[in-house]
Every structure is written in C-alpha cells, then in structure tokens.
Simulated scan of single mutants.
Amino acid sequence: TPDPISLNSLIHDMVEAGCEYAFMEVSSHAIHQNRIAGLEFKVAVFSNITHDHLDYHKTFKEYITAKKKFFDDLESNAYALVNLDDKNAGIMIQNTVARTRTYALKSMADFKAKVIENHFDGMLMDVDGIQFYSLLSGDFNAYNILAVYSTAKLLGFSATEILEKLSSLSGAEGRFQIIRSEKKKAFAVVDYAHTPDALLNVLKTINGLRTRNEKLICVVGAGGDRDKSKRPEMAEIASRLSDMLILTSDNPRTEDPEEILKDMMMGVDPAKKSKTLVISNRMEAIKTAVNFAQLGDIVLVAGKGHEKYQEINGVKHPFDDKKILEELFELD
C-alpha cells in the first residue's frame, strides 16, 4: 500500500481512465501508518489473520488491533464483510458502524459455499445453491472465490453474472502454480507461502488431492530480518506434512543464511531428520528436489512465488523459482 499522496494520485488516474471500481489490499502497516487516510471504502473484507508481520507489530494483539482499526473507521453506509470461519472475525466488527455481512464454508453465514470436488486443475463448488466449476484448487482458493462473489453481490451484481466471470478466472502467478514434467510425469507447485499458516494450507491442499502413491518433496526457507519465531514452526509443518524436506534460503537479506537454517532445523522432529536436507543455495536445493523426484512425484517450492529476485545483503539478484523448474524439467 503506497503513501496517501501516491495512492490518491493512482486512484485519480483510474477515475480519469474510466475505471468504476478499485480493489486494493490494505496492509496492517498501511493502516497503522495512516496511508489510507481520507479514503472512503464501500466494502471492507476480512479474510483471515495469521502469524505474520510480528517483526513490525511485536505482538499478535497489536497486529489484530491494527487490522481492526480499518473496520472501526468505516462509514455507516459501507459494508464490513468478514469470513465467519476465522475465530477473529467477531473482533474485527465489534466496534464498526458499517453494515456487517458474513461469508463461510463451514459456518452459517449470509454467503455460503462448499467444495464438492477438488482436483489439481480445478474444483466443483456450490455457491449459494448454484454449482459452478473453477480453474483454481484448494479450500484457500474457495474462500477467496467466495469473498469475491460476496463482495460483487454487495455491489449489486447478479449471482449468474459473477459466477460466469469467476469460472474463467485462472490463478495468480506464483500462487499454487503448477509446472509439469512430461518426461518424468511428475510436477511441481510454486507457491508464495512464506508464513506457517500459508505453508500449512498449501501442504494440506496437496495432501488432500494426491493419491499417496507418490512422494511429496518440499523445498522451503524463511526470510531474513523478519520474525524469527515462525522459522521453526514452518520447518515443523513442512517436515510433518511432506515425505522429504529440503530447507534452503529464501531472501536472507542481511542475515547469514546458515543461521536462518539453524533456526528452522530447531522445529524439525528428530524422527524426521533422516528425511531432511539442508542446502542453503536455493538453486541447488531446487535441483536436488527435481533429481529426487520420480514418476508421479510432487515437488513443492514454497516461499517466493511470483518474485523474480533473491535479496542477499541489500542486493536483489535475478531468481525465478518457476523459470528454474521449467528449465530443470526440460533437461530431464
């Protein structure tokens, strides 16, 4: 979220270009630093809140308070739309004067959906009693689809119009993006998951879709100069939910990559250490995972997703997980 002057300038340019709707992510940093001051939101959406940004907010309570302020400051003619399946949804709207609406997969809510069939290349969903097929996969994407559907309904669009558009929507770059190897009949998943909750979601999604006759190899690291407490937690999740784990560098920034990896190894169960490798060079880590992959195996490369660089000691070096995987699969 840019500063208030840049943000208003961008929105002005959108209006001049004939844009009628602007959708934006509002970060907790932006709320705390008043970067959205002066903006009036028609709909504010709360999806979930997890262990993140504690290097800035220091405590989870302060993180929640920053997010809550967004809803506290809404006008009475706005909508506060919250995911009722998240335990903190009630906290977000307890002091808002906006009109509150809810969405959920598991709870009774104003907007309801369920996943009927889930596959690696898409899923069949029921949204408010209407079945439709999405090109996206996993419960986390089902929540995102329902949030978009609910928002569009509040803005006055019809259910059939919304679902028709959503049915042709493909995934964002670096978010559960699949790269296939025709030679190995295996594939890789590139995902931006860089928090414990995000990593848990993507691994649970893969495990829910796979046959269990194949190996799941996970390549993951943790960023430097950020919240250190999530490092062992992420390693614990990855080691528990994959058949083989390769810990590597993410964006070490000004930290020693080896020290970051030591922090991560603290979370690996001793019983899982025999199936865990530590390779600080990310390129070598990905290459090792691909070499280990056999017929039908799945390689998850997590943490960087769409990013086209690796930040080391203040320098952003060209690095693209997806491109590297495509090149390695081509060589096999």
Rank of each mutant, 00 (worst) to 15 (best):
T59L: 08
L135Q: 15
T102C: 09
F70N: 08
I64Y: 01
A113Y: 09
A98T: 05
I49S: 10
I130D: 11
L135V: 06
F46R: 06
S76Y: 11
Y56I: 13
S76C: 10
H51L: 14
L105P: 05
S134C: 09
T50L: 04
N88Q: 14
F46I: 05
A142Y: 05
H53K: 04
D72N: 15
L81S: 06
A98K: 07
G122F: 11
R101P: 04
E117K: 14
K112W: 02
L135Y: 09
S28P: 03
D85M: 05
F111Y: 15
M108V: 15
D128Q: 14
E16W: 00
T50C: 12
S137D: 00
A89S: 14
K67R: 05
G38T: 08
Q131S: 12
H12R: 13
F46G: 05
G90M: 06
M24T: 11
K61N: 13
M108Y: 10
A30V: 07
T50Q: 14
H29P: 02
T59V: 08
A109Q: 09
V26T: 10
S47L: 15
H57K: 05
Y56P: 02
K58F: 10
L84W: 02
H119M: 01
A80H: 03
V26W: 06
N95S: 14
A80E: 06
V43T: 12
H51Y: 15
A142V: 06
E16S: 13
I91P: 03
E75Y: 11
M108H: 13
H53A: 07
T65H: 12
G90Y: 08
A78N: 04
N88K: 07
D121C: 00
A22W: 02
N141L: 02
G18P: 01
L81V: 06
V127Y: 03
T65F: 01
A80V: 02
A66N: 07
S134G: 07
K67E: 08
L136W: 02
A104Y: 04
F132D: 07
V115W: 04
I36C: 03
A37G: 04
Q33V: 02
V15Q: 15
R35F: 08
K112S: 12
T96N: 06
L74R: 09
H32R: 13
A30T: 03
F111R: 02
L124R: 11
K106A: 07
F120Y: 14
Y21R: 06
M123G: 06
H32M: 10
M24H: 04
Y63I: 12
E25I: 00
N88P: 00
A37N: 14
H51M: 05
R35K: 12
G38C: 02
I116K: 13
R99C: 09
N95L: 07
G129E: 09
D72E: 13
A66L: 12
E117R: 14
N77V: 01
K61L: 08
S28E: 02
V127E: 01
M92I: 07
L54Y: 06
Y63P: 06
G18K: 11
F60N: 01
K69C: 04
I49H: 06
R35Q: 03
A17I: 00
I36N: 03
N95P: 04
L84D: 07
N144Q: 00
I36M: 03
V15M: 11
G122N: 08
K68R: 11
A44W: 01
M108N: 15
M108E: 15
